[in-house]
Design a protein around this nucleic acid. Structure first.
Length: 946
RNA sequence: GUUUCUGUAGCUCAGCUGGUUAGAGCGCUACCUUGACAUGGUAGAGGUCGAAGGUUCAAGUCCUUUCAGAAACACCA
């Protein structure tokens, strides 16, 4: 073995072997239960980012852990067709390459083009997932637009429609005027923008004046351009300034439309002027007001947010109406919404109707895909009636059928579910599941799985012309079915029986509403069971300054760059590619060069995975730290080199030896430590504490196995008897091999590589055997030796004390020392029995015991515990005053302990109320402190007398 | 505005249902190229647990208030 692990050279080859030999498939066993995770399907246009790497590492740890325990394990993966995102990618591509639009292609041809793109460039992410080591059953990979999943979508749509849980309605939706589609309220993001508040005068009808004699009232608005759609002005009925005007009319300027003044609580007396213009077709609140007062709705905008040529007037039910005429002044027709705004203001000014303009900061809704302000817009859309679906979904979490880890996220879930809005599921796109609804020439709607089914279901003559709905479904509609559609539903498949409900869902809190909640609703409705039993919610990985990683900020770190390494020039190129603003690109380039002057080295997948596991604590934010990655890369190197040490010594004895082994104290101690590590690791993973699991491995392997045990085997392997060597070698191999299996779920590649070298020396390994299918270590109480543990820990404290003295007096390790022990509990015998180890690790030439009352030599000393003191005689080296100062310091500390203990124990309240166990502990502590104090004082006297 | 989360060593974070002298990694200091590893070894320095009250025999841990940061939701005519 080389002296470092070459991750780039090994990992892909190891993965290829695993995948080819079918190791990722369920084992089909029925004796140990099944375990299943459904991968949250990544966007087919997406590339692997830190969030994926994080969540997938956790899923893979769980999957490998359960698979090694012999469970029938399935990791179901696939990608999601990502309606808008994918359509935009392909539109951009044909625009750039062929200067064509999707309309140039037409619907059919365009969709073909998308499929072509998907075949060629889609799913890049699945290749990257392989690089992460994800042990996914690729033979079962699914895509939300696959025929099987599409069938599930149609089935669900039709059944929900038949149960009256899907309906079509003319309503206000969030409309993206750039993409010209409806989007759900979740796809809207609010941004703070600098705007104005315009105060406009609306003249009162003839003969009406305000109290102070004015013939107009003033409305304040942020959207003057929608005034063409005003159908009322609202005032608060309790507002003495205006209450007497309720029922009167104003004449809407520019179009001379008389509209009523209504009294409505929506009008807030403290805001603006207290008068609000009501535009039911262009504002969600106004729409509510409109409903309360049966106001007509007037649409004045086109799909791309320009002023219409003729206003569209509807009654309160959305039926065309002629209560108002459709006149729009000519100069406004076809004008963009913001140009129209300017012109409206200008016209009001000309007419002397502009009262004033104020600066105003407000939150404006933007479409998260299109990036332009969204428009409340009156259209016909399909909706899912969510209230009836939400009820059981809330109950499932309340009664513990589904648990969130960490628990706190349940609040977030409840808060949203309890005031859930109907879900707008239709999208005006081409790429997606076409809505299975057909219309006849009269616009009557028929819903069915296919046109044939519709015809027979509704007994439609073949002469009736049917046209399918043009719209497609929201992508989340199909991903809401993911856990069961991927397992074959609506067919009743064996996979569904075996693997559904799935066990754990691992995801970020940002999609609890988008996906998790909807999945719970849909699955409960159609399967009458939960989609998963546990939702493990991960934190969000941020950059080192705690900022969200985003392309536009240029602070994204690509997980693959950390695995494989990247030069600084390439990194800058990647980070600044496709930037909207060139000046930002420059900034990003500068920062990147400062942060990574030499690029990023190749740390390997295992180091990345170990780091991600170690960071997976319960917090909501995780700040990425390259230093941690480096530290865990070093850890992998430590494991590698410890293994080299073990292998290098394989010929010194028989690693396979078992049975009557002459196990040394150290052998028994490390075997005990290993058992505790196994126990603690399993407890950590079972409670989703991957940070603790990583910590257990790290501490055991580095701080116990490498720092102590390997060192302790050196004197044995160099100078020991053959049976001692056999015992040590057997222990080295056994402990290492077990540790590899223990660590394998977190660091799969390096453990496999080492295991292939180690295992054949101690067990039968057949061609094609792999660590990933070996048994996961189990806690074995018969290997635990508490006495060995205690004795070895004492020896460690002895060694540390001598090293400490050595450092204090600056003595080189080549300078061999002698140590004396004064002990009343037999510790001195343990030390003498293990002299060879002490000599090696503390560089001693002798260890002997000294009677308590014997004459004390001139020495540096340390108290090891209440019964044992170690002395290192150092004539001419030890400074008497220095030694006295040190002892005084310790006496002081001990005195504090005694005082604290006595105070506590003399407190009647404490003795009376605290549990006996705590009091007992406190008494023991006090006794030890007292005894140590006594010893120190005696020592001090002796030292002083020298 | 409402709700939630976070605030522990210079940095990044652990610290379970309250019970020893608050831990780790990185960084820092000194020493060490000893036959697995300098991606290493040995020894060390470093914290009044954001602040103030309270509950309790006992609080980093529970409660209240407060400050700072973050997020979600809502609203702003």
């Amino acid at each position: 073995m080389d002296n470092t692990f070459d991750s780039n050279a090994s990992e892909q080859e190891i993965y290829r072997r695993w995948e080819e030999s079918g190791c990722f498939k369920p084992n089909g066993r029925t004796d140990r239960g099944a375990f299943c995770i459904a991968l949250p399907p990544p966007n087919v246009t997406g590339v692997l980012h830190m969030g994926h790497a994080f969540q997938q590492t956790i899923m893979d740890i769980l999957i490998r852990y359960h698979r090694m325990r012999g469970e029938n394990t399935l990791w179901q993966a696939g990608t999601d067709h990502a309606g808008i995102a994918t359509q935009m990618v392909v539109e951009r591509k044909i625009a750039a390459e062929e200067h064509k639009t999707r309309q140039d292609y037409g619907r059919e041809k365009f969709i073909e083009k998308v499929w072509e793109w998907k075949a060629k460039s889609g799913g890049a992410i699945t290749k990257q997932m392989r690089r992460l080591g994800d042990s996914v059953d690729w033979s079962r990979e699914r895509f939300t637009m696959d025929e099987g999943l599409s069938r599930a979508v149609r089935e669900v749509f039709v059944r929900l429609y038949d149960e009256n849980l899907i309906y079509r309605g003319k309503r206000l939706v969030n409309w993206d005027p750039k993409l010209r589609t409806a989007i759900s309220d979740l796809e809207v993001e609010n941004r703070e923008v600098q705007s104005h508040m315009w105060h406009l005068r609306y003249p009162l009808e003839k003969g009406v004046t305000t109290k102070d004699g004015k013939d107009y009232i003033i409305v304040a608005t942020t959207r003057p351009e929608t005034m063409f759609g005003d159908t009322a002005v609202a005032v608060n009925a309790k507002d003495p300034r205006y209450d007497y005007l309720i029922g009167k009319k104003v004449i809407l300027p520019l179009v001379n439309r008389p509209i009523p003044i209504v009294g409505d609580e929506h009008a807030d007396m403290t805001k603006g002027t207290g008068c609000v213009k009501i535009t039911p077709a262009h504002d969600f609140n106004d729409n509510e007001v409109g409903k309360r007062h049966s106001l007509p709705m007037i649409n004045v905008l086109t799909e791309d947010a320009r002023i219409v040529d003729k206003a569209e007037v509807y009654d309160i039910n959305g039926e065309p109406s002629d209560v108002y005429d459709s006149y729009i002044p000519e100069e406004f027709r076809g004008l963009d919404r913001y140009k129209a705004r300017d012109l409206v203001v200008e016209e009001f000014k000309k007419l002397g109707l502009l009262e004033k303009i104020e600066d105003h900061v407000m939150m404006q809704p933007y479409g998260d895909r299109g990036g332009v302000p969204i428009e409340p817009y009156l259209t016909s859309q399909w909706y899912v009636r969510t209230k009836p679906l939400a009820e059981p979904a809330i109950k499932a979490v309340e009664d513990g059928s589904i648990t969130f880890v960490p628990k706190q996220y349940e609040n977030m879930y409840f808060a949203w579910m309890r005031n859930i809005q109907d879900w707008c599921i239709s999208r005006q796109l081409w790429w997606g599941h076409r809505i299975p609804a057909w219309y006849d020439n009269d616009g009557k709607v028929y819903v069915g799985r296919s046109e044939e089914e519709v015809r027979s279901k509704y007994s439609l003559d073949s002469a009736v012309v049917l046209k399918q709905d043009q719209d497609v479904l929201d992508t989340w509609f199909s991903s809401a079915l993911w856990t069961f559609s991927t397992l074959g539903w609506p067919d009743d498949t064996p996979e569904l029986k075996t693997f559904h409900p799935t066990d754990v869902l691992v995801t970020g809190f940002d999609i609890i509403f988008f996906w998790v909640a909807r999945m719970i609703m849909m699955t409960l409705h159609f399967r009458h069971e939960v989609p998963f039993k546990t939702v493990y919610v991960t934190g969000l990985i941020r950059d080192e300054e705690g900022k969200k990683m985003s392309k536009s900020k240029g602070n994204v770190i690509d997980p693959l760059n950390m695995i494989e390494g990247i030069s600084i020039d390439q990194l800058v190129k990647n980070r600044t590619a496709n930037m909207m603003q060139p000046q930002m690109a420059e900034k990003v380039a500068k920062r990147t060069r400062k942060q990574f002057p030499n690029g990023i080295e190749a740390y390997g997948t295992d180091a990345l995975r170990f780091t991600l596991a170690a960071l997976a604590s319960t917090g909501r934010d995780i700040n990425w730290d390259m230093k941690r990655l480096e530290g865990y890369r070093n850890f992998c190197n430590k494991l590698w080199n410890a293994s080299r040490y073990v292998l290098m010594n394989k010929d010194k004895g028989n690693p396979k030896a078992e049975g009557n082994l002459k196990l040394s104290l150290a052998d028994r101690w490390i075997r005990t430590k290993l058992q505790y590590a196994i126990r603690d690791f399993r407890a950590a993973v079972d409670s989703y504490r991957f940070d603790q699991a990583a910590g257990v491995i790290y501490e055991f392997l580095w701080n116990q196995f490498c720092d102590w045990y390997l060192e302790l085997t050196k004197p044995v392997l160099w100078h020991g008897e053959q049976d001692e060597k056999d015992a040590a070698l057997s222990t080295l191999f056994h402990v290492l091999e077990t540790t590899l299996r223990l660590a394998h779920p977190i660091i799969p590649f390096i453990t496999e590589e080492i295991w292939q070298n180690i295992a054949p020396l101690i067990m039968d390994v057949k061609e094609g055997d792999t660590i990933m299918l070996k048994d996961f270590p189990e806690y074995d109480a018969s290997q635990v030796d508490e006495k060995a543990l205690k004795e070895q820990e004492f020896l460690k404290s002895f060694i540390i004390a001598v090293r400490n003295i050595r450092a204090e007096y600056n003595l080189s390790p080549t300078h061999k020392l002698s140590a004396l022990l004064i002990s009343s509990n037999g510790d001195d015998r343990i030390a003498e029995d293990n002299f060879r180890n002490l000599a090696q690790l503390a560089s001693l030439e002798s260890v002997s015991s000294l009677a308590k009352d014997a004459e004390r030599p001139f020495a540096a000393s340390r108290l090891l515990n209440a019964d044992t003191e170690v002395l290192v005689p150092l004539k001419g080296v030890v400074d008497k005053d220095q030694e006295l100062r040190r002892i005084d310091k310790e006496i002081e500390a001990r005195k504090n302990d005694v005082a604290r203990g006595e105070k506590k124990l003399s407190n009647q309240a404490f003795v009376g109320k605290a549990p006996a166990e705590v009091i007992g502990k406190e008494r023991q502590k006090l006794a030890d402190a007292k005894s140590e104090l006594q010893k120190l004082e005696a020592t001090r006297k002796q030292v002083e007398a020298l």
